[in-house]
């Protein structure tokens, strides 16, 4: 390279060119600036989540009551699975930084091993997130939506949640119209709920132990539970439709915005993890075929490492603002 560059006599001077005040390569610096812009994107999402939450501060769902499941285990375990996901991601960050360190020492075998572990960690995380989405979409106890778009949930007198299936007797819900049933002139209609509103109303009236829990928070940060008379009146006057699970429009856990932000923020983060895994796999194979060995340095590993750590960094914030605060 040296032989092709014309010397100007100003090398090393600040404005003379060839001076690198930040002492970082072009690629690494641009990765840093990309990370800044991506960090601003994520903070935009999290700030708008904060906006909606402050707007509905007295009726926002309590995350501990929403995310209570652990795969293969029945019961109520708030937060455990998310904590596990956080550990997986931090640990894959550790193996990534170990790969970078091994790259500095030009130890190819170690780089391969640590990159491999990082990819596995990333895959476990994405898989866990998919499972988390599935559980969230499927729903838990079910709820009734009011005319005003608010959610009514059911509890017994001890304050334990009660599922729709335990309230209603035999379901009187009709069959869904489908084109395959010969109703050729109609498009398939929306999914019907398992029970009709009248099933729930009848079941609710028949069981004196049942109460209604509204979206609104009391002074102590618990959801407000109505008295028996208020509950019956509320359900009969305001109840409009049954909600099971969550999508972008309806959400049995509370405000639909909560579900929207959940899908959007964890989805965007999950997409980052996914693309991080793909980039890691590409670099992993480059390491195996010896590209960086021939190049004389493993800076590419360092650059994808920066991206991977950034994904971990974002998760730390998502974890706090979605699940803890």
């Amino acid at each position: 390279m040296e032989t092709t560059v014309v010397e100007t006599g100003t090398e090393g001077k600040v404005w003379g060119g060839g001076n690198r005040p930040l002492k970082a390569s072009y690629g690494k610096m641009m990765m840093w600036f990309f990370i800044v812009s991506d960090a601003l994107t994520f903070s935009g999402f999290l700030a708008s989540y904060g906006f909606s939450r402050f707007k509905f501060i007295d009726s926002w769902p309590i995350a501990d009551e929403v995310f209570t499941h652990v795969p293969f285990v029945h019961g109520n375990f708030p937060m455990y699975y998310v904590a596990f996901m956080t550990f997986i991601l931090i640990f894959s960050s550790v193996t990534m930084v170990l790969a970078v360190d091994a790259g500095h020492q030009m130890k190819k075998i170690k780089v391969i091993l640590y990159m491999f572990l990082t990819i596995i960690g990333g895959l476990i995380f994405v898989g866990s997130q998919a499972w988390e989405w599935k559980t969230f979409i499927k729903g838990d106890y079910g709820a009734v939506e009011t005319n005003g778009g608010r959610i009514l949930q059911f509890v017994d007198t001890d304050g334990n949640r009660v599922a729709l299936a335990d309230i209603a007797g035999e379901s009187t819900q009709r069959e869904a119209h489908t084109r395959s049933n010969g109703i050729w002139y109609e498009t398939d209609e929306e999914t019907l709920s398992t029970y009709t509103l009248d099933d729930i109303k009848a079941g609710f009236a028949a069981n004196d132990n049942l109460l209604i829990r509204t979206q609104y928070l009391t002074e102590d940060g618990e959801k407000t539970v109505l008295s028996r008379e208020e509950s019956i009146a509320k359900l009969n006057s305001d109840g409009k439709l049954i909600v099971e699970g969550a999508n972008l429009i309806r959400n049995e856990y509370g405000s639909p915005l909560f579900a929207d932000f959940f899908f959007f923020i964890t989805g965007f983060h999950g997409f980052h993890v996914f693309s991080g895994v793909v980039i890691n796999i590409i670099i992993f194979f480059n390491v195996i075929i010896g590209t960086y060995e021939r190049r004389g340095h493993y800076e590419m590993v360092e650059k994808v490492g920066l991206y991977w750590h950034f994904v971990d960094l974002v998760w730390v914030f998502v974890f706090t603002f979605f699940y803890l605060v």
């Binding site: 970082a24 840093w32 971990d312 730390v316």
Partner: peptide, 26 residues
């Protein structure tokens, strides 16, 4: 959370070893 973010950035992303200029720019 900010404490964790600091250590992820400073030690995993090696911000501690970068120049002051790059660190402040980011």
């Amino acid at each position: 959370t900010l404490f964790k973010a600091y250590y992820i950035t400073w030690d995993f992303m090696h911000m501690r070893d970068e120049t002051k200029g790059l660190r402040r720019a980011v």
